[in-house]
Design a protein around this nucleic acid. Structure first.
Ligand code: MN
Ligand code: MN
Ligand code: ZN
Ligand code: ZN
Lengths: 141, 141
DNA sequence: ATGTAAACGATAATCATTCTCATGTAAAGC
DNA sequence: GCTTTACATGAGAATGATTATCGTTTACAT
């Protein structure tokens, strides 16, 4: 559960929609949530909320540094709680499962590649797409 | 300029819209073109074409292996001719300039990271975002 | 408790992309 | 060259995610 102070610290008023949304991430059912996921979960719990609020709050949380927004290769954004530091993602094209990884050598070489071209990196995105190699993908939908 | 055979080889009828679009990439004014870029350029040249055709043809070219589709961190897709092999991209957040790079070590480590997680990579996307370090960004809009 | 600026939710608007469908055309066969 | 026909095209509607608008509600400082 998230506490009102989590929001106040981030410079945001502690409103009910914000607390509910932050809680969804903190209680950790799933690490990567879309606006749609959040809207449907909260409506399903009987909490009255609108898409406008969901999108507004997600953007505010991103700007406040509470969440990171990801653009996988489909059309919608997913969000993830900022905890445990930066990492990159791999998604199974069969079942949609997402796993995380971090390779400091890749990170370093990204900076170097940018420098060689006269750029200073501010951000980057790295997504791998593939298939679970297990005989039967355990997450097949 | 593109020749009808370029299309026939790819298993596509040599129609006027397809030839025009492929030529835009081959004559190389810009390496990275959006559907909007293509539509506006052709309309500007007095050639009558619709967005439906532009999007349809771009998808066909992608499936035929003639083009690669890129999703930068904005909302629209850009396309690039498949020549010279795979590479990744860095975009200037100030002026939108795009440069290309390729680091075999990064590529190798991506495959290894995937293997460790039990995945076989089929595709990946790596985009760096930053600023031109030159005193005055030469491409500022 | 009250006042006020901020936040909310319903709904309309955007915008890139895709779909529908009536018409046009490339190229295969005569 | 001329038909045939399956495939391609362009206009415009539809889609789907996200954003903007706006009247109402609420957090919270006074
Ligand atoms: Mn990374
Ligand atoms: Mn790459
Ligand atoms: Zn899988
Ligand atoms: Zn620049």
């Amino acid at each position: 559960m998230s506490t009102p102070d989590d929001l106040k610290t981030a410079g945001l008023k502690a409103t009910m929609p914000r607390l509910k949304i932050l809680s969804l991430f903190e209680q950790g059912e799933a690490r990567h949530l879309s606006a749609d996921d959040i809207y449907n979960t909260l409506i399903g719990e009987g909490f009255d909320i609108g898409f406008a609020t969901v999108y507004r709050v997600l953007t505010q949380f991103e700007q406040a540094g509470l969440l990171t927004r990801h653009h996988f290769e489909n059309d919608r954004s997913v969000f993830e709680l900022n905890q445990g530091g930066h990492h990159d993602h791999i998604m199974c094209l069969q079942c949609g499962r997402v796993e995380e990884f971090y390779d400091p050598e890749i990170e370093k070489r990204q900076v170097e590649a940018a420098e060689k071209l006269g750029f200073t990196i501010r951000d980057h995105s790295l997504y791998l797409y593939g298939d679970c190699t297990r005989t039967r993908c355990p997450h097949r939908k």
